[in-house]
Design a protein around this nucleic acid. Structure first.
Lengths: 244, 244
DNA sequence: CGAGCTGTTGATCTCAATCAATCTGAGTGG
DNA sequence: CCACTCAGATTGATTGAGATCAACAGCTCG
């Protein structure tokens, strides 16, 4: 992990283009930039571990970061894959507690970190920023809930189908591509499957001509069949009646 | 679902005591109260379902609410049990989208709802409120992440042990009680177990004199053994070496 | 009382984890 | 250019934990 020496104005330049901070007042950004650092991570490098203290919010400028739990127990479960422009680390920031998760670079990445003090200062004066952060955190929570729902579906093919349908660009597209946001291992972990099961399930759906897999790209050929996996089982079991 | 006819001043009285809104300016509260309604729910009554539109934030004044997903598919997975003073419904509120989950009263309950317009108005002017809501949402996300981690642990006894340890009042207490926040069925669902497996696991730990179960109350007798379930398995598998 | 709900216990079965082996392609260096 | 390594992905065989099915015990409530 390398902290680069950029000038404040360079950092402001970068921040001004990030979703959270764009269109904020120039003085606001400059104060935030005072508490900001740029961080360079090599592929596989770990930014923080579960339980570490934290006093900064991170934004991905380039590259991608894997957020996971259970890393220390050797039972990694991926909860999010954060791409460029997105933020992470809100939880320890606002709860003033240790990190609940581990953050690891999936490829060489540049991050911008903003210190808690600078951020809190900005939040005290700028409601626009607060609103964006609320929306941001809610969005993360929403995908988390979707993933929980997904992992709770019984069969592996249902989970995969549901995942692929979640990434449908719009309600009416019948064919579309999904590019896996990480290695098959990591995506399997998001789905709560072992990499082996994930691989098998992928091939199973391919056999049935529902999808076509080309490396990390999955082309959806038959949305209806995919949905039938998902919407299946509408058990309307008759109520149990004793002696009848 | 009954919307009671309370006077604005009565609502202000109630709001002033809720965590999110206490200590806000009187004029702020009165404007929020304009957009507020009190809602009465009977036990088992559903406030909203997955996919419903929503334009209000809810706070539990008394009673308790179960938040779950997959309700419509007959595969309910409980993601949160919300008690008095706590808020829910932030996600559709800030994402301007449909509810990702279902909210159902676990007992007769009173709620206060605040309309989106009133809340947004307040957030635009009051950074204190925004900060509290950020902390609130982050806290919910934090427990969500803990639960995901938990459900990903292999054995049922590990999950139960981890759950019970999460509710330890402080790091040093060796004996303590955990009162289940809902029916065994619902708690089992939080742990990602069937109620049958949950029951069996409970009795298994009781057999080993680690806990004592009395209805919804669980007394922890042996924290160390409980921790050994959790911290167990520190697989330090030697790296695979071919022909050696 | 009987209906309905929650929780318990027993028997069975299924699906995904696990172990193990192989394959592929990218990267490295002689 | 080939040999070698290494990480990721795949495929096969096995198995065990937990879901499911089934029956029942308590309990509360009208």
């Amino acid at each position: 992990m390398i902290a680069l020496e950029l000038t404040t104005s360079q950092i402001m330049e970068i921040m001004g283009r990030l979703p959270y901070f764009q269109e904020l007042g120039n003085d606001e950004i400059s104060r935030l930039a005072e508490g900001a650092r740029e961080i360079s991570l090599k592929k596989k490098e770990i930014l923080y571990r579960e339980g570490d203290p934290a006093d900064a919010l991170f934004t991905v400028v380039s590259g991608s970061i894997k957020i996971s739990v259970g890393h220390s127990r050797n039972q990694e479960k991926v909860i999010d894959l954060v791409g460029r422009g997105q933020c992470f680390g809100e939880i320890p920031m606002f709860l003033h507690g240790p990190c609940p998760s581990t953050a690891q670079a999936m490829e060489d990445s540049y991050l911008l970190s903003v210190s808690r003090s600078a951020l809190m200062e900005a939040l005290d004066h700028n409601c626009l920023l607060a609103g964006r952060m609320l929306a941001g955190v809610c969005r993360r929570m929403h995908t988390l809930i979707k993933d929980i729902d997904n992992c709770h579906l019984r069969s592996s093919s249902q989970r995969l189908a549901s995942y692929l349908l979640q990434h449908r660009p719009d309600m009416h597209s019948r064919h579309y591509d999904v590019v896996l946001p990480g290695s098959k291992h990591d995506v399997a972990s998001i789905l709560g499957l072992s990499r082996e099961t994930f691989s098998r399930t992928l091939h199973q759906l391919e056999e049935e001509n529902i999808i076509r897999v080309t490396g990390p790209q999955i082309r959806i050929l038959d949305v209806e069949k995919l949905q039938s996996y998902n919407g299946w089982q509408r058990i309307e079991r008759p109520p149990y009646v004793k002696d009848q």
